[in-house]
Nucleic acid binder design. Structure first.
Lengths: 341, 341
DNA sequence: AAAAACTGTACAATCGATTGCGCAAATTCA
DNA sequence: TGAATTTGCGCAATCGATTGTACAGTTTTT
């Protein structure tokens, strides 16, 4: 007893008008009389008519869906962004199609193909660690699919983006450490070719520079930003002499690694060693000591990208798509970096 | 310089055959000769032909997308499930369309409508806290859209589901507490009309029962499973006399609330009070003491639902869709529940 | 009053892939 | 050799919505 979907033809037949009139009435086309318009709309309501997106998409070439590509969907930051995107876009009748790259370029390229194939109206992308060029994005230009970056962006692609001011976040974090009295501050850095990690390093260097502190190369430890990377950084760093007084980590998991290593080596945090992270992962609030970190405003970021896309859709000008929004990060000061003296 | 998408007609023209031949060749239709088949496929490859999903969907009525509805996408468990789903389904050429309910029935109903409207091939659902009946699911039957539940399921709907054995998880957790020597164990429970929370309570009761412990009503505290709920439960529970010796919480955040309240009230964990949670949120490993909890196998669950759906797609029998898979949860024993005596 | 402009609607093509039907050529069978 | 079957492929309808064009009837302009 399958009830088929109601079509405009069903409505048309019921009202003795043509399907095109129904279509126009539903779009509030000016050339449809008030009376038939309301009649059609009432009938559509009554039958719970839902337009067939496939048909509309086929004809119009626009699918009312947006593709989202993230490294991993189950990272707190990314799922927050997706949450924000979903809220804003669903309100305007758009759907989300989600792909993960697992930080691999090949997956990213195939996700792009998949989404082109699905005729998405736009792609919202945060590039993988492996991504260093934009070859895989060429197809989008050819097919005139809009592209937006968030958080991790390729510098040389002219397109809209919403990022957080990573340099500022790092700067604030390091400045805070300096104000607390920590001087010899190690930076546990991420892969330098990713814009955000590069920017975090820059912020670190600027803060140190302004404080008149020379940063030797050994103070910058590029590591995988995971617990193990943090542990490794701790061991390497604590072998220096004089010993470092604080670690500014470009990621929370690395900071966690440093913290755990410090504890198991009998180093007191924050008294003997200050630690700050980056990302405001939920667990950071519950660590002991709780971890100072930088919030990247994932939800807000998602909403802003959505808004940027929706703006572009309204004015059909395909230009003006390359607005670049930079959000202010928020330094969240917790116990891992507070020296009471 | 927009390059339009390549269609079967382009390929047909190039090879001087008809579009239908191209279509059949690409589907390995038996009535197409080996030679033209390979010629078509080679040409399709060369032109990087991608079928237009909208057109295929319109004609065939199947969209090659699956709708997923979760309470919140940025909860660790749900994003793990989605990750698992995405991996398995992408491999078979399916896309995911994701909606969140924010635990509200109205949102769930409208998400269903949205997905019906998008002509998804199936809907994979974990119901919201507010959902108590299946009225909003009726439309799916009429439209013959397959439905699968994961984790949170409605008992009275005949459809496939993958859940974790919540009762067992709770049982194992409470049994572990009992083996450690804790006797007066409070249960911080979730809303009882949700199958999973009901099952966790049952597991608790069974373990207590087997240990010959009578559970007075006051030991079961139904609270919102968040930090505040845990704090409230701690305060209520510790007012009992004799004082409880452990808290088994139906959620990790509630357990965190209990833990924090215990600490700020000078109650030592695990010496004076054992605590266990449920869900294996990432932060639980980093608490002090680290929190004993139950892992729900989110990634595996996602993969299994995906597999169940794919199996149904193969054999076009619309029956046999109501297989019910129950996964074994894993008790993760950490420091918050270990009494060394 | 004739011409011009506007209103309201229908017709039909279109988007791209799928598929039932039909037909000719090739092959098998009697 | 003629009939029956099989093979290979094209034609044309179809899915449902959109949209340019046409056209009759009305209203406005000159």
């Amino acid at each position: 007893m399958k009830k088929p979907h109601v079509t405009i033809h069903d409505i048309a037949k019921e009202l003795n008008v043509s399907a095109s009139t129904v279509s126009r009435a539903l779009q509030n086309h000016p050339r449809i009389s008030e009376s038939t318009r309301t009649a059609v709309q009432k009938m559509a309501e009554q039958y719970n008519y839902q337009p067939n997106v496939a048909a509309a998409s086929l004809r119009s070439g626009r699918s009312k869906t947006v593709g989202v590509i993230v490294p991993r969907i189950n990272r707190n930051f990314f799922s927050n962004v997706i949450g924000g995107l979903e809220e804003s876009l669903a309100a305007s009748g758009y759907h989300l199609m989600i792909c993960q790259t697992h930080e691999q370029y090949a997956n990213e390229a195939s996700a792009i193909q998949t989404l082109i194939n699905a005729r998405v109206d736009a792609i919202i992308l945060s590039i993988s660690m492996e991504t260093r060029n934009n070859e895989h994005l060429q197809g989008l230009m050819e097919k005139e699919i809009r592209l937006f970056f968030f958080d991790r962006a390729l510098e040389d692609v002219e397109t809209g983006s919403v990022v957080v001011d990573d340099k500022l976040g790092a700067y604030l974090s390091v400045k805070h450490l300096l104000e607390q009295g920590y001087r010899r501050i190690i930076h546990v850095a991420g892969a330098d070719h990713i814009n955000i990690y590069h920017a975090r390093k820059e912020g670190y260097l600027q803060a140190m520079n302004e404080a008149g502190i020379e940063v030797p190369d050994q103070w910058i430890l590029e590591k995988p930003l995971m617990v193990q990377g943090g542990e490794a950084a701790f061991l390497t760093g604590m072998n220096l002499s004089p010993k470092p007084e604080a670690f500014f980590c470009a990621g929370d998991y690395a900071a966690l690694g440093v913290l755990q290593a410090a504890k198991s080596n009998g180093v007191n945090v924050p008294e003997d060693l200050g630690i700050t992270g980056f990302a405001n992962e939920p667990f950071t609030a519950f660590l002991e000591p709780s971890l100072t970190t930088v919030d990247q405003k994932g939800g807000v970021m998602g909403k802003m990208v959505a808004q940027m896309f929706l703006n572009c859709e309204e004015k059909t000008t395909l230009s003006a798509t390359c607005e670049k929004i930079v959000l202010q990060p928020e330094l969240i000061i917790r116990n891992s970096s507070i020296l009471n003296r």
